[in-house]
Amino acid sequence: MEFSEEKICELCGRKGIEITIHHLIPKKEGGKDMPTARLCIPCHRQIHALYSNRELALRLNTIEKLQEDEKISKYLRWIKKQHSLNDIKIRKSRERRMKK
């Protein structure tokens, strides 16, 4: 993880946040050596709370596809308004909670 004023989340575009590396195709789905994206912690957590690794690998394997998806686009409209130092709480989607 990295922290710097220069760091920008590739998904939400917020600046000055801690960055994590997100495998666009999850490692468990064969994406270990595949492209990655630099995401803030809340965005990274939200993606994995909303979608299964299989869904990420098959349907949502680019930043553009993620940004266009209905569930994450609602979240992105909200997170862009949040200060980078706010403690963001993440909840799993109803579908993901029901599967467990």
Rank of each mutant, 00 (worst) to 15 (best):
R77E: 15
I17S: 08
F3Q: 00
P35H: 00
M98L: 15
K27H: 03
P35T: 02
G31H: 00
K89W: 06
E5Q: 11
L56P: 01
K65Y: 05
I25F: 00
G16E: 02
E29S: 05
K81Q: 14
Y75D: 05
P35S: 01
I79W: 09
K32D: 09
G30D: 08
I88R: 12
I72F: 02
S73Q: 11
I90N: 07
G30S: 05
K28E: 14
R38D: 14
S52D: 05
R91L: 15
M34I: 02
Q82H: 12
S52A: 08
H48P: 11
R77Q: 15
S84W: 15
K80C: 01
Y51T: 08
M34Q: 09
F3E: 01
E64I: 15
I63Q: 13
L85Y: 12
E10A: 03
I25C: 00
H22T: 02
P26I: 04
I8Y: 09
I90S: 07
L66E: 06
E70D: 13
L58T: 04
I41F: 06
G13M: 03
R38M: 10
R59T: 02
E70V: 08
E70C: 04
E6N: 09
R59Q: 10
C9L: 15
A37N: 09
L24C: 06
T62Q: 11
T62G: 11
K74T: 12
R54T: 01
E18C: 04
K80E: 10
I63E: 13
M34H: 05
D69E: 15
H83Y: 08
G31A: 00
H83W: 05
I19L: 10
I88L: 11
N61M: 02
I19E: 05
Q46G: 10
N86T: 13
E2V: 01
I88Q: 12
L60S: 05
N53A: 09
K92P: 11
I79T: 12
E2P: 00
L58N: 11
S4R: 07
R59V: 01
K28F: 02
I88A: 10
R97S: 14
A57K: 14
L76F: 08
I21V: 11
K92G: 14
K15F: 07
T36W: 00
K15G: 06
L39S: 07
L24P: 04
W78F: 07
L50S: 13
I19V: 06
K99Q: 12
H22N: 10
F3P: 00
S52C: 06
K71F: 03
K89Y: 08
H83G: 07
K74H: 12
T36P: 00
M98T: 14
I17D: 04
K32W: 01
S84V: 14
R94T: 14
